[in-house]
Design a protein around this nucleic acid. Structure first.
Length: 555
RNA sequence: UGCCCGAUAGUAUAAUGGUAGUACGUCAGAUUUUGGUUCUGAUUGUCUUGGUUCGAAUCCAGGUCGGGCAACCA
């Protein structure tokens, strides 16, 4: 019944490697640098790495690529671990590149001893200048001809703190004329007299990415080192270190990073939004971060499903944000309890319903579930709140909500017929007058009347208030980076609309932070864990419902 | 005017020399006590020019377009 999905290119590689006995077990890793929060692009990488190992009975490590103490912090380490777990993955081993500093140092010394690394005296600017350009070869540094003994002495001195930042670096001796810029004697170690979040002041020299990452893979016996396309040109260097040091032959494979419409994905740009207070932190529900999506109401399953649906390839791509919305609706439709909430209330008065009378009706929790997911109480009385947009004084064509003389069903209650309305001094409709049909009670309707429209409502005397936050896309442009000027100039000014006093049904007072609901006809919402207090409930809109009516309006 | 990579409906992703399929989107219809859900149908595609072949999205060559590479970042 579950038809075979065809393999993606990484699965094909793994199957081939297993079939040829190149590897008997596969070992992947997810290697974030702890310098920011994880985003949906990382989720793709996580699903790929863990998914591959799961599928083929292998293992996945979590490794923090913490080789640059200037930008990294334990705060990020903790958030990353929490996010990976929340997504539903558990790592085999937890490692830190900083745990390998001793081993990496030994490997560097090994390379010096082989005459394949040397200590450089030039400044960063001088190195850059002598590196040449993509079309012209670089020039070999005078330091390239230092003796092994001198290199060992100088490298030890670097390690011992005898030089200041920038005075010396260790370089691999590869090829200054290589057409690949990364092979022109790349830097292996630089001096940074900065406190490291894990190793403190033990080290003042830190390995560069190309050296540290590849060798960390080897140390952990990673068979398939999966990274994004921009590292493709680094692969020859990755392989060079392995060959020269004769370490475990990990292999690097690249895939295209995820791009999403109407947002930005680079850590640098997300950091800017946070630092300039354009959003409410890394976990702002509008952010494409895992923590933002979580607060917005996305479920781990919906994100995993999304990653499955987008597939993986080596070509640049930009995924429609609508696909993510589809995934969360698909999930929540099956699991979220239905509740009635009126965002923009006007009064509906049932003139033939006795004053002072009230009754308790039953509302199904979820029609998609077995036994409708059970029922909750819905107090009903003469005065109700309804959505102001559900009444039109002069109905437009194909309108089947309330308008003079028209009938609608009040969800889970009675059919009512509009008999009139009242306006305030400004001409705004404030009250809609109706008569109800007693025989039309939900579940025991003997009226024989069929109506096209059903609207949501809340009994005025038992309604509670809550703040509701409506989120929309963060940027107006599909790809904010394609537009003229600063990407921030394309931000959507209406990406957050706060409704301070929405009317909610009484049952919602039992909601717990993170609980998810479908507000009937309005969308999926969750109780915000950050702003909700004992006195005030705050709901975040995860996503709207599909709205065929609104779509007709656009045409 | 260097090196590397890529190009299949609007967006993604299959087809591994043999009928171009799937999902999302869009459009239409049915069902519906959510203009939701569900169901049915429709819609639109192999960048280009040559070559190899009985047969090319697939292999080869040229072109075009797009992306990446010259941080003591990862």
């Amino acid at each position: 019944m579950s038809e075979e999905r065809s393999l993606n290119f990484l699965e094909e590689i793994v199957e081939a490697d297993l079939a040829s006995a190149k590897h008997t077990i596969i070992h992947t890793r997810f290697p974030p640098e702890p310098n920011g929060y994880l985003h949906i692009g990382h989720a793709k990488s996580i699903c790929l790495n863990f998914g591959l190992a799961d599928k083929y009975g292998g293992k996945t490590n979590l490794r923090f690529d913490d080789t640059n103490p200037v930008t990294e912090d334990t705060e990020y380490v903790e958030s990353i671990k929490a996010d990976v777990r929340w997504l539903g993955f558990d790592w085999e081993e937890e490692h830190y590149a900083s745990d390998y500093f001793d081993q990496l140092y030994t490997l560097a010394v090994d390379l010096i001893n082989k005459g394949l690394a040397y200590v450089e005296d030039m400044s960063a600017e001088e190195i850059a200048a002598s590196k040449g350009t993509p079309t012209e070869p670089g020039k070999e540094s005078p330091a390239r001809s230092r003796t092994i003994e001198e290199n060992l002495r100088l490298f030890t001195a670097m390690k011992n703190g005898e030089y200041n930042d920038g005075e010396k670096v260790l370089r691999a001796k590869v090829d200054m004329a290589s057409p690949n810029m990364h092979m022109r004697d790349p830097i292996m170690y630089r001096i940074k007299k900065t406190n490291h979040h894990r190793t403190g002041d033990t080290w003042c020299i830190y390995p560069m990415y190309d050296f540290a990452h590849g060798q960390s893979d080897s140390i952990e016996n990673i068979t398939h080192s999966i990274c994004t396309l921009e590292f493709e040109v680094h692969r020859p260097l990755y392989n060079w270190y392995i060959e020269q040091l004769n370490t475990f032959p990990s292999t690097q494979f690249e895939f295209a990073r995820l791009n999403l419409t109407y947002t930005v994905m680079s850590k640098r740009k997300l950091l800017q939004l946070v630092q300039e207070n354009l959003v409410d932190g890394w976990d702002d529900p509008r952010m494409p971060t895992i923590s933002g999506l979580r607060r917005r109401g996305f479920t781990p399953a919906s994100i995993r499903n999304f990653c499955e649906k987008i597939g993986v390839q080596r070509r640049e791509n930009i995924i429609d944000f609508g696909l993510l919305e589809f995934c969360i609706r698909e999930d929540l439709n099956k699991t979220a309890n239905r509740r009635m909430v009126v965002l923009d209330p006007i009064k509906l008065i049932i003139t033939n319903y006795p004053e002072g009378k009230s009754e308790i009706l039953k509302g199904e929790n979820n029609p998609e579930m077995e036994d409708n997911g059970g029922y909750r109480d819905l107090p009903f009385s003469r005065e109700l709140w309804i959505e102001s947009e559900d009444f039109q004084e002069v109905p437009q064509k194909k309108w089947f909500r309330l308008a003079p003389d028209m009938k609608v069903r009040l969800k889970s209650a009675y059919i009512v017929q509009c008999t009139g309305f009242n306006k305030d001094a400004q001409g705004k409709v404030t009250e809609v007058l109706c008569e109800y049909i007693p025989e039309s009670k939900s579940g025991s309707d003997t009226s024989g009347i069929n109506v096209k429209g059903t609207i949501h409502w809340i009994s005025a005397d038992s309604a509670l208030n809550a703040e509701v936050r409506l989120y929309d896309r963060l940027f107006n442009a599909e790809n904010p980076l394609d537009e003229e000027g600063d990407f921030k100039s394309n931000m959507n000014p209406n990406s957050l609309v706060i409704i301070p006093q929405a009317k909610i049904e009484p049952d919602l007072k039992h909601a717990l932070p993170g609980d998810q609901f479908q507000f009937i006809r309005k969308g999926y919402f969750c109780l915000d864990p950050k702003f909700t207090t004992a006195e005030k409930l705050v709901f975040n809109r995860t996503v709207t419902l599909k709205d065929a009516w609104a779509k007709m309006g656009e045409k």
